[in-house]
Amino acid sequence: MSDAMLSKVRKLLAQAEDPACTPAESAAFTAKATELIARYGVDRALLAARDPASDPVGDRVVEVVAPYARDKAGLLAAVADPLRCRCVRRREGTGFAMHLFGFASDLERVELLFTSLLVQAAHGLAGAAPPAGAHVAAFRRSWLAGFAHVVGVRLRAAEAGAVAEAGAPSVALVLADRSDRVRHRVAEVYPQLRTAAPRRLAGGGFGRGAEAGRRADLGGRDAATARAARPGLGR
């Protein structure tokens, strides 16, 4: 992502996090940051349509470790899919290796947002005490599921808004072609890939996690800085 774009996003998020802001003002700043991230994805896709070498299809592996590795993997999938990336979950030890496929600019967006959202999820869980008598781990797993669900919905809406703003009918065709090329790459690497069965969660934290997902900053942060400060999700 360009330095100019990152600078704009950082300023918007700093304003959104200012305690002097009203909730409405904070939400507006966060929405603008998310809009910039989505617009960047469309701009890069159109540029690559003219110059394919500027944004090649690629892949990378993201290690997702315990505790709550499967739930973190679910969050990564919730971020990747709206941004036109695909991920394959592979069990490794007590965690997972998430094999991401996508165009370089989209992989960059996914990693940036996922790193930021992991930090936000950790902070949100730290302040979300389970109800008396609730199973703590089950509550946290369902909380993370709610958080991931709403984040995915919000990202999908932002991407759709950026496409609509671009206006030209060709944009949708370019993006559809990119998605097809990513799916083709996944099929080449994993020709016998199977879809995992839906997960059932018993905890009662989904609603509170969803509410935290609605408040989450989706503009991204500097990945290196966020990784250095990344907290764990607790046990």
Rank of each mutant, 00 (worst) to 15 (best):
Q120C: 10
V119N: 09
V79S: 02
F101G: 01
Q120K: 09
L113N: 04
A104R: 08
G124S: 08
V136Q: 00
H135D: 14
L112D: 03
A132P: 07
T115L: 10
F139R: 01
C85A: 13
D81R: 14
F114I: 03
A78E: 08
L83V: 10
R89H: 14
G95I: 06
Q120V: 10
A126N: 07
A77G: 10
L118G: 04
A129I: 04
R140L: 02
R140N: 10
P82D: 10
R109D: 12
L83Y: 06
G95F: 02
E111I: 11
S116A: 15
G127A: 12
R91P: 08
A138I: 00
G102Y: 05
F101K: 00
E108H: 13
E108T: 15
L107S: 04
A132E: 15
E92V: 14
H99C: 15
A104T: 09
C87T: 15
R109L: 15
R140T: 01
E111T: 12
L118T: 04
A126W: 01
A122V: 04
L125Q: 03
R90E: 13
A132Q: 13
A78L: 08
S105K: 02
R84G: 12
G127E: 11
T94Y: 09
C87Y: 05
A138H: 03
G124C: 05
V136N: 00
H99V: 15
P82R: 03
M98V: 10
C87L: 15
F101Y: 09
F139G: 00
A128N: 04
L112I: 14
R91S: 14
C85S: 11
F114C: 06
D106K: 02
G93E: 12
R89V: 13
Q120W: 06
S116T: 14
R90F: 07
R90T: 12
E108I: 11
A80E: 06
F139T: 01
E92H: 14
H99M: 11
H123Q: 11
A126E: 13
E92L: 14
R84V: 07
A121M: 11
L113Y: 03
H135N: 15
R90L: 12
A138V: 02
A128K: 00
R84Y: 11
V110D: 03
L107N: 03
R89F: 13
F101S: 00
A122P: 00
P82A: 12
R109P: 05
F96E: 05
C85H: 06
A128M: 05
L125A: 03
H123A: 11
P130G: 02
L113D: 01
V136L: 00
G93R: 12
P82C: 11
V136I: 01
V88W: 06
S105C: 13
T94Q: 15
F96S: 05
D81I: 13
V110Y: 00
A138D: 08
C85P: 09
A80P: 05
C85Q: 06
G127F: 05
P82F: 06
A77K: 03
A129G: 05
F101E: 01
L83Q: 07
A78T: 07
G133P: 05
A121E: 02
P130L: 01
T94R: 15
T115S: 15
R109K: 15
A121F: 01
V119K: 10
P131R: 08
A122G: 15
G127S: 11
A129Y: 00
V79F: 02
A138R: 02
V79E: 03
G95C: 08
Q120S: 12
